[in-house]
Design a protein around this nucleic acid. Sequence first.
RNA 1: UGCCCUAUCGUCCAACGGCAGGACAGCGGCCUUUGGAGCCGCGAAUCUUGGUUCGAAUCCAAGUGGGGCAACCA
Length: 558
Amino acid sequence: MSADTPRNNFIRELVAADVETGRFGRPVTTRFPPEPNGFLHIGHAKSICLNFGLAVEFGGRVNLRFDDTNPFTEDMKYVEAIRKDVAWLGYTWNEERYASDYFEQLYEIAETLVSNGKAYVDSQSEEGIRAGRGTVTSPGTPSPNRNRTASENLDLLRRMRAGEFPDGAHVLRARIDMAHPNMIMRDPLLLRIRHASHYRLGDKWCIYPLYDFAHGLSDAIEGITRSLCTLEFKDNRDIYEWLVREAGFENPPTQIEFARLELDYTVVSKRKLLRLVNEGHVTGWDDPRMPTLAGLRRRGVTPDAIRAFADTIGVARKPARVELATFEHAIRDDLNMRVRRVMCVVNPIRIVLTNYPEGQVEELEAPYYPHDVPLTGSRSVPFSRELYIERDDFMEEPPKKFFRLAPGREVRLRYGYLITCQSVVKNDAGEVVELHCTYDPATRGGDAPDGRKVQGTIHWVSAARGVHCEVRLYDKLFSVPDPEMDGDDGDFTSHLNPDSLKVVSGAYVEESVVKDAPGSAYQFERTGYFVNDVIDSAPGHPVFNRTVTLRDSWAKTK
RNA sequence: UGCCCUAUCGUCCAACGGCAGGACAGCGGCCUUUGGAGCCGCGAAUCUUGGUUCGAAUCCAAGUGGGGCAACCA
């Protein structure tokens, strides 16, 4: 529905107008510019879909640019993970670029700014610079170094580059206005000294550009037309425009801001996700509870579902929090049309069909897809005297509207027979341990020749032939919609959901799935969508991750 | 006590001076060998006060609410 006609948004309109008027004199060019200091998450997916979607729609170009200007935090392993995730989402970038490839060019621009009196070397301490910046309600004060001559500044800048000074001794600042109402414009820092090894360039540089200096100029160098970023960079737009103008770029890119994605019951901040990993709240960046693309992939979420989700949430300038149900709907909607249905009993109870011949096994033909999914295929499932059914599918004293098994009640075993519960076997503690049922041999396949109807159809697995497996039931990572609601006063980890993972080791799945490759996805009928875990599944011991439950209208009426 | 952004159903997004619409969620019903899916239906919103205009969700002003900005992070 969305593939051919992306839904409209204000950025798309601006880009369409650019194309109409030929404003930039070059094709629509966007970029996705992550810093390689962590894994991509669902919030990045929104940005990726926007940037790549616009380029595709308007026949333009997109670069994947690594914004790697801080040698303290970046690593090649993140570059590799980011490449993998963007490709997994289904996008191909025209060029792979690195801000670090522009360091020389940026340095030359720095020298030009200095020569033109537009930048100066400040030798104040970090604290001194901060104090001189003033506050949001009071103007800053000029640095004592603000009036150094161009030649003095040039000399210092060159010596900064040559490595003559320790970290923090000097910085390069733009000379703009220390009383500017926009704090960002109070002589923003351009270059700082960092005697650190860069993950790509090693020790080639000891001065590194800051975000504001690198970002807009990198965009301009690459011929970007519209530079899309999130709302918190709004105030940085002024310095972005100042720099591309001072550097003399023709038809420079312009920045447009949109609201970042906030999703209920999770956090999307690299810093916080890193804490979850480092503090062991999750097993890693790819823990299936993480909102990272690596985590979602391992959880069984498909790229198509993420793209559909990105399309339904839209793009606007108002900070917005999206309900988890919106995301879950996109996941189910996609999986419904693509995955096989099989049977798995997560929490088993044994039933014995007392009138079924001992030792007999029938192979029953079971289609993989329901009538309304346009895919075909089937497998046979073994049916035998002893079976497992879901413990929740039996109640000794059923309430009204409970359609499943109960003493004296008849239900359908999916693709099997109609069975009636005759008696209940309990242990000394009074717990139900087994059910004795009878089956109607005339109902093979599930239809009664006499036309009688049963209300309930339940799933089952042969006790003799079912395969023992581990099932991981994932739930929300946090127990409140906004884990960051306490701000800096609280610790978001205090809202972690203690039940975000339930490991069930005693489940039984039908034998047809054991030969499937890791990563295979299914619907376990009546239970949810699951994926065979890529990491922990072993031959003979499959592990299944629950991607998402099925909608459960019974749970609501309960 | 500054500057900037922002305000439409419960949630997210449309409507670009001319009938407020879609999706998700909710509630009914139909259908069903998944209490799934699907189909049909219902309820549900323009922050406030002024102004401009034949006509305002839309333009203007003020107010109020929400958000961002005072890292040698991005």
